[in-house]
Design a protein around this nucleic acid. Structure first.
Lengths: 222, 222
DNA sequence: TATCGTCCGATTGTCAACAATAACCCCGAG
DNA sequence: CTCGGGGTTATTGTTGACAATCGGACGATA
C-alpha cells in the first residue's frame, strides 16, 4: 500500500507541494522569483486553497519566504548557512535518531533501507544525481522515522529540502559511487547494533560534504 | 511601530496562532487533546481558514501533530528530545547567529535588547516566569534576526516554541535572577565585539538548563 | 457469539466569491 | 526635474458552502 507518490490518493496540497518543491530544486523557479497563488492554481487546475497551504509549507522548509499581503518569493540557498548551520544540526539530529532507531528497527525497516540503497546504486550507475540524492535523503528519513521521535522528525522535515537543494548543486563534486558505499556501510553498521561503530560511520558520512574549504567552488556567487 | 501584539493590524491567522500557542503552553489544551477547526473558529469568532493555517503553523512548530482527514492533536513535550536535540541545535544555531550579528547590530538593535532585559528584570522581580521566558526568547530572536540569515531564522522559528514550553515547565528549578544576570553578560559581551568572549558566555548560558542529570526531576514521566 | 459489511455522523479537504491591502502609475506642484 | 498625493490594479486574506473521508455504531450472518 503506497503512501507516497500515490497519484490522487493524497490531499491536493501534498501534490501541489511536491510539484512546487521539485520545480524549485530543478531551477524552473529561480531565486528571487515571485510565486503567485492565482497563477499556480490556474496552472495546476486547482483552487487557491491547496496552493496557499503548499506555499506556507515551502516557507517552513526554508525554500521560500513570504510576507503578509506580498506573497512568497523563492529563497536562494546559502552555502555558508547550509555548511555552518544546517549540516551541523543534521549531525546532532541524526546522531540521536540513529542511536534510538537502532533498537527499534524492524526487518521491514531494513528492507526499506535496502530498497533505497538499490535505487541509489541504480541512479549512480546511470549518473542520475537527482535519483541518488532522492534515495540518499529517503534512506536517512526512514531511520529517523523509525526512531519514533516526533520532535526530531519535525526538525528533519524543516531542513531536508534545503540540504537536498545543496546536494543537487554540489553533488557533482564527489563521485556518486562513494555515496553508495557510505550508505552500505551505514546499513551494515545499523544492522550490527553497535552504537560505537555506527556513530563513527555516521559522523564520517555527514561531515564529509564541505567542498569550499579550498575555495574551489565559487561560480554562482551572488 | 509595533509589529507584534498589534491588536488587529496583523492577519487573523497570526492572532489565532498566538492565542492557540499561548493556550497550549498554559495547559488549557492538554497533550493528546484534539483541536477541532470548527469549534475553535466558532470560539474565536472567525472562519475556519485562518484557524486551519494556524494549526498548520503549530504543526511546524512541533506543538501539534496532524494527520490527513483526522485533524490535529496536541503533542507533549519530550524532555529527552529537548535536551538531546533541540538544545544542542540551538547552540550551533546561535553560535553562528551571534557571531554574524555582532558585526551587524545597530544601536537600535541594542536598544531592543536592553528593553527585553528590562522586561526580564521586571518579570523576575515579580516572580512572573511567563514574562521572563518571553523576554528571554525574544532577546535571542532579536540577535538572530539581526544576523540577517534567513535560513537560520527559519530554524529558530521551528524550535523556539518547544524550548519555551520546556522552560516554562522546568524554569522554576533555577532562580529567575540568574537568568537576568546571564543575559546582561550576554548583552555586554555582544557590545564588546569580542567573538571569543561572547561565544564563551553564550555557550555557558545555553548549556546550563539540564536539570535531570542527577535524576532530581522525574515527576511527570509518562 | 464473533465477524463482517454497511450506514451515519463528525470532521477535514476543497472551492469560488468577496474583502482588505499594498505596490504601482500618473499627474500636478514646487 | 524632483517629490508628493490619489486613484488603480494586482495580489493576498477571509468567508461560507459543498465534497470527501474517516471511525464507529448497528445489524445481518454464520
Amino acid at each position: 500500500m503506497p503512501r507516497r507518490s500515490a497519484g490522487s490518493q493524497m490531499p491536493r496540497r501534498q501534490q501541489v507541494l511536491d510539484i512546487l518543491r521539485s520545480e524549485i530544486v530543478t531551477g524552473r523557479y529561480e531565486p528571487g522569483e515571485r510565486l503567485i497563488e492565482a497563477a499556480i492554481s490556474k496552472e495546476l487546475g486547482t483552487s487557491r486553497g491547496p496552493v496557499r497551504e503548499a506555499l506556507r509549507q515551502l516557507e517552513h522548509e526554508g525554500l521560500v519566504v513570504s510576507v503578509p499581503y506580498r506573497g512568497a518569493v523563492v529563497l536562494d540557498v546559502s552555502d555558508e548557512e547550509v555548511q555552518e548551520v544546517l549540516i551541523p544540526i543534521r549531525l546532532t539530529l541524526e546522531s540521536y535518531s540513529f542511536t534510538k532507531a537502532m533498537e527499534l528497527m524492524t526487518d521491514d525497516d531494513f528492507g526499506e533501507l535496502a530498497k533505497q540503497l538499490w535505487l541509489m546504486e541504480e541512479g549512480a550507475r546511470r549518473g542520475d544525481l537527482q535519483q541518488v540524492v532522492e534515495a540518499d535523503l529517503r534512506f536517512h528519513e526512514i531511520v529517523i522515522a523509525a526512531s519514533r521521535r516526533p520532535h526530531t522528525m519535525q526538525v528533519w522535515r524543516s531542513i531536508w529540502p534545503r540540504i537536498r537543494n545543496y546536494f543537487v548543486r554540489y553533488g557533482r563534486l564527489r563521485p556518486l559511487e562513494s555515496n553508495v558505499v557510505e550508505h552500505r556501510e551505514l546499513l551494515e553498521a545499523l544492522a550490527s547494533r553497535d552504537p560505537e561503530q555506527m556513530l563513527e560511520v555516521l559522523e564520517r558520512h555527514i561531515a564529509v560534504p564541505v567542498p569550499t574549504s579550498a575555495g574551489s567552488v565559487a561560480g554562482e556567487a551572488r
